[in-house]
Amino acid sequence: MARSTGIRHRNAPGDCGTLPPYASSWSLPLRPFIRHRVALAVGIVVAGLWLGEALLHGQRVDVDVRIAPPAGAQPVRTRADATLEYPVGPWEFYFTRAIYSGYGRGRRWGSRWATDYPKADLQFISILQRVTRLGVYDRENAIRLDDPNLRRFPFLYALEVGSMAMTEEEVAGLRAYLDAGGFLLVDDFWGTWEWQNFEMEIRRVLPEYPIVDVPVDHPVFSTVYEINEVLQVPAVNNAVYGGRTWEQDGYVPETRAIFDDDGRMMVMINWNTDLGDAWEWADNPYYPLKFSTYAFQMGVNYIVYAMTH
């Protein structure tokens, strides 16, 4: 499912601070609910089940994951002077994935930060090496939000943030990271419920900055590749079997961002779309080329934008 993204707010980096917060303009996603009452009913049922699960059995699962030092190409070294080890070497760029705490139980809920990990990361890294001049570290790199060494990696990728439930330490770590100059790319979360959860979480980190829409004429869409419309990149099952591209009630892909007072983009949000799945399954001959191409192009755009702005 694709749409041409209209400009709802003129959103040049310089004037984003004057835009109204996203909360004041979120009525647009409700339209599909009105048109599709069946979907609305299903959504209510699903939401109720999910809420019930959370209330009855749910608990916040604080991550305690140790990532083994990547066995990458020499002369990589690793450090263990913080809670986690991290790679140190001659590379300019480390594709870094955020490890965060979340709601749920069991492997599925507690490990949603690791969705598509590490295959999506590795496949995207190989594309970066082929199409750009970026000196990119050729292994995956995941790091906790409360790890002080997080700030060594000014680009950070987080996905499935619909179940995110950060600890206070993680909130502080992410806040310091973003204040210092870090860039967070958020991906692969769908529908109203997950949006509200993510919005609540990111408000804990950046309460004072509004979330604003990023129109397709924003420079981030043309940093390297010219993107003229925002595609809804579906998860692999939907894409391969040619079904719907949306999940839950996330019918329209949205690109939103949080800018600081100087107009610097701190957080780029891809909602109702799944770039990570496209990276992961790009090698699947049945995965539509247009989605994987778009996902790679937008990934490159985001990274180069983050490295220059």
Binding site: R133, G135, P154, G181, T223, V224, V304, H309
Partner: peptide, 30 residues
């Protein structure tokens, strides 16, 4: 000659300096 974080942080460092204009030419690919 390649995407580097130095570009971002140098630009950010001088962004408020109205007397400096750092024009960036960055080779992203060949």
């Amino acid at each position: 000659g390649e995407p580097r974080f130095e570009v971002k942080f140098i630009r950010r460092a001088v962004a408020d300096d109205e007397n400096l204009q750092v024009v960036v030419l960055q080779r992203t690919a060949d």
